[in-house]
Design a protein around this nucleic acid. Structure first.
Lengths: 237, 237
DNA sequence: CAGTGGTCTAGACCACGTA
DNA sequence: ACGTGGTCTAGACCACTGT
């Protein structure tokens, strides 16, 4: 509902509105680019920009020689933003505290770590730590760092710095994959999170690569009652 | 790693590669558009397309008068795709079955439904149903439909058709917001899902609007052990 | 003020798929 | 074969902003 500042945004919003309102049902043919060109009195690049964006958002399908059509909704695509934990805690207005629980160096086992994408016998740093919001545990972190990808991590103690921010400033960028699931807290987890045994917890697991090499696998376990992950739909980019 | 078919994709990939590999660390200034124009022997629109896309993906920040810079990673943004349940089940190679549990019409209560965005005393359809994968319950669905937004739903029994697909074919498109959390199954939920009481479950709640009006709120409860939500990072569009 | 990115134009050529 | 979308050009004007 914000005023579109540019013309291609206005075209995008106009067409998006017609689709969302149902005025143009799925399968409806959208005016050809040259028709929209006349309608808005602009060049083809401008309408193309809008239509390309609508196609990327999944609202329309484009077929050469036939035109563009309103897509039938297949899957709900939404953008998930996973923030830095410190930021997340401070956004709640609570003081943040970090605590390292354990750190050891070992080799990747064939079974578990292979599934996480680490090669057999890769040297790994295995870290457990906790993040606090005020006095209460906010989440627990179990992290594996591939020392082949990040050899500098070997000399880090992670006593005061959380592995996440440290990695971000040492491994510049990365592709990532997130998996979200629910588990029942085992005894150790329950104690560390200050919840009852078998309490429901939300687990966010992130695997990160850099230049084809697996860098880190982190598993964040939140008390289920206090944390939720939110994703919002994005028609416009 | 796929061969970029278009020039702006190649420029995007080249720069993205330099950022991901660390060759250009956060804060590094990216060549000006007119420099890239010379470097690739193309027009400014082409490099602009690539840089705009990198900025939308969050890999770079653009500042007028100063140039474009490699962004420091702030939040992990990933694309979450939530599919139709039937599709999801059948993708597992299992037969899909749907079962309606209850249906009743009532007015929105001030407390609970207001939080879901429904106006006070809106007429609602309140449906509970289950989705099966083979013989096992796959997930439980609790759904509210706003009859002010979808009056045709009043005459539907939803005995054989799940509300999701029906709504998709009757309410053309929508904005949506997803919330994912973990809960412990209460007695009723546990029985319906065939798990133990207090078993950890993954709850995906989706609220949907159409033309500013709230259309439906659906809460899908999955046995935590058998279901995960996956989101993947997307540098390129 | 000068230089950057944001946006737009009025053309063009091509691949491709449908008729 | 033809018309569509995909891509690209070589300009242009403007707003913003740091110097």
């Amino acid at each position: 509902m914000t005023a579109p500042s540019s013309l291609h945004q206005r075209i995008l919003a106009d067409i998006g509105q017609k689709i969302v309102s149902g005025e143009w049902p799925p399968g409806h043919r959208i005016p050809f680019e040259h028709e929209l060109t006349e309608q808005y009195g602009c060049s083809r690049m401008t309408v193309n920009k809008a239509l390309t964006q609508l196609a990327k958002a999944g609202l329309i399908e484009r077929r050469k020689r036939s035109g563009s059509f309103v897509a039938r909704p297949r899957s709900q695509a939404a953008v998930l933003e996973i923030h830095d934990i410190r930021t997340e805690v401070e956004a709640l207005g609570l003081p943040y505290r970090y605590e390292r629980l354990s750190l050891r160096q070992r080799l990747a086992a064939k079974t578990a770590e292979a599934a996480a994408g680490f090669a057999d016998t890769s040297p790994l740093l295995d870290i457990a730590c906790r993040h606090f919001a005020g006095d209460a545990p906010f989440c627990m972190e179990e992290r594996l760092i591939n020392l082949e990808a990040v050899p500098e991590a070997e000399s880090e103690s992670f006593a005061d710095t959380a592995p996440g921010p440290w990695l971000i400033s040492h491994v510049p960028w990365s592709a990532a994959e997130h998996t979200i699931r629910a588990i029942a807290a085992d005894r150790a987890t329950a104690r560390l999170l200050g919840v009852g045994t078998n309490a429901a917890c939300l687990v966010v697991e992130r695997r990160t690569w850099s230049g084809g090499l697996p860098v880190t696998r982190v598993r964040l376990t939140y008390p289920g009652t206090s944390h939720a992950v939110v994703a919002r739909f994005t028609p416009e980019g």
